[in-house]
């Protein structure tokens, strides 16, 4: 049996072997980490060429890796999506070519030592990217690389199959569960757009700049804005009440 087919069947088999019967987005993430023997995995969805957040993450570090990429617009998944090719960083602490200046520090602090991004695509259809990370540095083996490619392919198909059950204009419930589409950040963009009398797009840029400049997570800044603890139109400048 050719190794590609064998991989595909092994992964499909593992996906189907959940205790609960059926599979959902979370199962895709778990199996992604399992088959590639990584510390964790996350799946990022993109639309209009920007990250919309994570449809699933296996653990806190994966969640942070997705969160950072959403907030900063840089990282392995973002690059994999835009380049249409795998993006491999086997040694995040000492990369051959430094990249992702804002992403790298917090990802290292969280414990990630190697990060890998694989685009999710089906022919011309591009959905997002699969993120894998490991707490130890080192390259992927050939087998891990091959498994990751097949896994990304299966995940892309599976996401579309899951979404096919949804009512028009809505996300499938199986994709919402366990997802983090950063709703609070978009709510805060709406609030700030009124405070500063700018477009919601510009408001998001201001939120991002503020978070980066004050060394805060975007989601925390957004939560403070929505709760009214932080205003962008205050005369006295923007005082940060902290998380």
């Amino acid at each position: 049996m050719s190794s590609g087919s064998e991989r595909r069947f092994r992964i499909l088999d593992q996906l189907n072997n959940s205790e609960t019967g059926g599979f959902d987005a979370m199962r895709l993430c778990q199996v992604s980490a399992e088959v590639t023997a990584m510390s964790g995995a996350g799946i990022m969805l993109m639309s209009n060429d920007v990250s919309r957040g994570a449809v699933c993450t296996t653990d806190e570090v994966s969640a942070l890796i997705e969160d950072l990429q959403f907030a900063l617009g840089e990282g392995p998944c973002v690059d994999a999506f835009h380049l249409d090719a795998p993006v491999l960083e086997p040694d995040l602490a000492a990369p051959v070519t430094p990249r992702w200046p804002a992403f790298t520090g917090p990802a290292l602090d969280a414990g990630a030592r190697a990060v890998f991004g694989f685009p999710l695509q089906l022919g011309a259809v591009r959905l997002g990217a699969l993120n894998l990370y490991r707490t130890e540095s080192g390259p992927l083996t050939d087998a891990q690389h091959a498994d990751s490619l097949v896994m990304a392919d299966i995940a892309a198909q599976a996401l579309l199959v899951l979404q096919a059950d949804a009512p028009p204009g809505q996300l499938a419930a199986s994709l919402e569960e366990g997802s983090d589409f950063q709703h609070v950040v978009h709510q805060a963009s709406g609030v700030v757009s009124v405070q500063l009398e700018v477009s919601v797009g510009q408001a998001l840029i201001r939120l991002r700049a503020y978070a980066f400049g004050n060394d805060r997570r975007l989601v925390e800044v957004a939560q403070n804005v929505v709760a009214g603890r932080l205003r962008f139109d205050a005369q006295s400048g923007q005082s940060d009440p902290g998380p």
């Binding site: 969805l45 579309l160 919601v200």
Partner: peptide, 25 residues
């Protein structure tokens, strides 16, 4: 159906962003 389903997925994601922004406004 990939193309069609992806369009639906993208539309659902975009719609959701719009709704969240409108809540904030």
């Amino acid at each position: 159906e990939g193309q069609v389903m992806n369009e639906q997925l993208q539309q659902a994601l975009n719609s959701r962003v719009l709704i969240e922004q409108a809540k904030g406004v």
